[in-house]
Design a protein around this nucleic acid. Sequence first.
DNA 1: TTGTACGCGTTATCAA
DNA 2: TTGATAACGCGTACAA
Lengths: 342, 342
Amino acid sequence: MAVTIKDVAKLANVNPSTVSRVIANSSRISEKTKRTVREAMEQLGYYPNHHARSLANQSAQTIGIVLPGSGGELFQNPFFPQVIQGISKEAHANHYGIYMTTGITKEEIRAEVLSMVHGRRVDGLILLYSRIGDELVDLLIKLRFPFVLIGKPYINENQITHVDNDNIQAAIEATQYLINLGHTKCAFIGGAPELVVTTDRLNGYKQALTQAGLPIRDEYIVHQDFLQEGGRQAGQLLMSMEDPPTGLIVADDIMALGIMSSLTEISVRVPEDISLISFNNLLISEYCSPPLTSVEINIFQLGSSATDALFQLIKETELPTNRFIIPHEIIERASCAPPKTK
Amino acid sequence: MAVTIKDVAKLANVNPSTVSRVIANSSRISEKTKRTVREAMEQLGYYPNHHARSLANQSAQTIGIVLPGSGGELFQNPFFPQVIQGISKEAHANHYGIYMTTGITKEEIRAEVLSMVHGRRVDGLILLYSRIGDELVDLLIKLRFPFVLIGKPYINENQITHVDNDNIQAAIEATQYLINLGHTKCAFIGGAPELVVTTDRLNGYKQALTQAGLPIRDEYIVHQDFLQEGGRQAGQLLMSMEDPPTGLIVADDIMALGIMSSLTEISVRVPEDISLISFNNLLISEYCSPPLTSVEINIFQLGSSATDALFQLIKETELPTNRFIIPHEIIERASCAPPKTK
DNA sequence: TTGTACGCGTTATCAA
DNA sequence: TTGATAACGCGTACAA
């Protein structure tokens, strides 16, 4: 068995409760006893038992990360590691640990979250996705459990603390960027339509078209997975139309890569034949050819701000619900050009 | 306060210990009591307190993942999410949770691991990297704490259960692949030289050259970070030599991307002017242009096998040390061709 | 088959 | 300033 507080107490000739106070650095313990106790801890190699502390404290010093069913390909997207890095940094600074869900299906995740929450395994949660109709958020609200959403809530927006980009505005700017280059036939390629981020970017796209007096053409709106394979299919689909678009707004860099790949196969050149702007500004977007013009959304900051907000919620339980908007910025590279004049 | 085992006991008119036995599904509890107790649990919405269980059980039902100081760019490499996915799948299947380190510096990580281990926060560890001179492994061996290394131990190989590819052999095959195409001037571009995976692949490269009767030229061996920027620099360096290589063995797909990018800038074409084979077969290697010929190392399996092995260690503490080799395979794409004949 | 009583390691309250 | 003692919620010999 490991060395406990009692062993330390014995060696230091004090009561276990005194040792506990030394650990907490209580102000009403003499410097002298503190020293002797600390020496005893050192000598025995004492480490506090996490579960005993959590049990007595009613606090786990741990936050939970809820992944969108890390099933298959989604996790290939560097978006997640980057948010997690942001979360990790803040958590570490606050001496909190990180616990991750492992489930794949909605039911598994729901069960996990329930046992994490009720089992007091975590003090708060960060949800890494926002999906339309997600019951989890409603559940957490009902439980009054501290959590922060990364993304925009699909509903109950002012009851849920969340951290997001202004995706509508970002999509407006991206679309305007193409329009300003002279494009009048712009298509939108988005990910799974049940993700709020997709609908937001789609709405921005539509607004920009309307503002510019351009028609919204349904055949120019394509939904695919947030992945390359989706991108490939979308690319081929669009280019096989009688009146193909000259500009593409793509909801994710990875999809954009897939699209570029499929365009290359059918000998369509970027940006000579078609322009392409996408979102997230992942590292790869700088190193593919041509380098992608992409909207930087500061993923790391998304994670760290969310964690910041979560700690507020954990500390003061009756805080007003908050909304944090992380800035975005178009990074111009080489995937966009004026349309060809016939 | 949450609903406890006592509340359930009261409602079901039994002793708390009986409830505990029902949770453990003890065989010596009548089906009838089980039913009534379960009904009571259902009705009250009972969830077991994780810390109390762990404290009584001396087991956390959690494994820890030690990241190589998730600092900065390393985590951009899709390698990590993929291993974690493998780990996650196995952990979930065994009803174990996952806890992650958050530290960046070696000291932070060491401290974290120590408190995780001694604080009984995790039942076992998986190290996601193998670095020459890493004190952590020695420490864990001394503590006789269950852990599995992903990669090859730099020392004490038969005291450490580990899961790895045969990176030497893989590098031999990759190099031979270029040699068989007719290349005689092959360079090696590796990552941080303190990572064992780098040295293994470098050794394989050297062995293949020797076997083929080709000289080992020091100026053809370059070490950079496992990242694109490293790749860029390496690419420019090599091509500026008086006698530049015609074939490149690159230790990581991401670096290969960086190299391709820099080659494009100085108008060197792949594979016409130079051939390129790399490792890991990440998704992007299929979607860049030209698509990369890469060595598939089955990252997901690396993670799941490691977790499997860890559970063995956790269950039977006196198990022989094991070594698991995950197969690899060259995936041919379009980045290699015979050298130009002058 | 079920209840009693104690231990798991720590914190917190109340005395002293 | 420190000590004794009761929680925290659950598991488990031992008894019944």
